[in-house]
Design a protein around this nucleic acid. Structure first.
Lengths: 216, 216
DNA sequence: CCCGGGGTTTTGTGATCACATGAGGGGATG
DNA sequence: CATCCCCTCATGTGATCACAAAACCCCGGG
């Protein structure tokens, strides 16, 4: 067989490329809940052998982005009601803290950038673009949390997003809304005012609102 | 080569056995910060090839139990001061919530079990058994948090424990204490009294006390 | 005594293969 | 028409190998 040897420049390793692509796909809700993934299928799609595909899959399983059946088959998780509520509670816990830590460092440039991101969200809601909505919504939150200077905490929050990805797709897919999330405006207002209690409440409301639509 | 085929009974898969063993070792502080691990070394120790060793290592890296150098070498993390403080804050955030959720379900049998675990901790402090101390201390906390019925949250807390494992070893190794942690008594008292604010404060104090010894 | 250079060894990455097992489908039987 | 069984195929697991690069070591020069 032809053995080509691409450079192993850390970030360009095959397993890492596969991992990042799949991770983004799952986090953004491009894959619905319960979808199955196979090692040879992934390998075929990315033009690699089973080895890097397996490493990427293991990593995603470790982060909760994929579930393993008792026979080793991997699929995106189909979360129970309890699990969804628990993950929403985790989002609230982590993101309220992140927002709180970011508040003193949130200058006008950041707020303006978040505002423009929110405009994009409004467009995507109009266009019924569920994946774009999820991606841009996460971008909105991440822009704020990056200012918290708390990488471990942000990583944990992203892990929760990852676990909720496929479920969020199912949620927003059936959602019939025509305007951007109301709580984003509250978040922006609290940031401008330097109002920490208001910010905490607005973030908590924003991250738990989606859940409400699933439980009823 | 001799190809022996052990049963693949899910939990008995080689990569899983390697993973669980290493995870326990790291979480309990049996490995100091900055220790390097090699795929062939792990394979040799567990009598397996590089393949399951690699999967176990990747999984541990994904959970933050191991760091990857820019050339792919794995080692236990040597945490910066900021990182330690952040992880301590995460412990506080998660474990206070877990304790709070466990409180209504904490009956007398649990409290007695936690009390007896605390006795073991006192013994291990006497014997200067750092690893035993860490292990039993985690057992104390886990016994309580299991009652919270929040598996995702507990998993996150354990991930934080895992990242702090090697550092905890370094910490308790240099610690010269002769009695069990004072805040455990406060936790037990608050549990008996059903005092939620007291419990939250006691847990927060307990998980952040160790940090204080590192920062001064 | 310190520092750099070159050769050797170790190490991670990815491909390929053998094997056992679980899943899926088709046909026979009630 | 439903149900169960068997056969086939697909899939995960683990071993082994080739290769490139990083790490290490030892020695010579300053």
């Amino acid at each position: 067989m032809i053995q080509q040897r691409p450079p192993v420049d850390a970030a360009s390793a095959a397993h890492d490329r596969v991992y990042r692509t799949l991770r983004t796909r799952i986090m953004h809700g491009e894959i619905g809940p319960g979808a199955a993934l196979t090692l040879r299928g992934i390998g075929r799609e990315f033009g690699v052998s089973m080895t890097p595909a397996r490493e990427a899959m293991r990593r995603l399983v470790a982060e909760g982005a994929l579930q393993l059946s008792n026979s080793g088959r991997a699929s995106t998780p189909d979360l129970s009601q309890d699990r969804i509520e628990e993950l929403a509670a985790l989002r609230a816990l982590l993101e309220v803290e992140l927002a709180s830590r970011a508040l003193p460092r949130a200058h006008m440039a950041l707020i303006e950038r978040m505002h423009s991101i929110n405009m994009v969200i409004a467009e995507q809601v109009q266009k019924r673009d569920a994946v774009g909505y999820i991606r841009t919504n996460l971008e909105f939150h991440r822009a704020l949390y990056l200012r918290a200077q708390a990488p471990a905490m942000l990583a944990m929050a992203e892990t929760v997003w990852l676990q909720l990805g496929p479920t969020m797709r199912a949620l927003y897919g059936r959602l019939r809304r025509t305007e951007a999330p109301q709580y984003h405006r509250l978040i922006l207002a609290a940031l401008k005012a330097g109002d920490e209690p208001g910010l905490r409440l607005a973030v908590r409301s924003d991250v738990t609102q989606g859940l409400k639509l699933l439980t009823r």
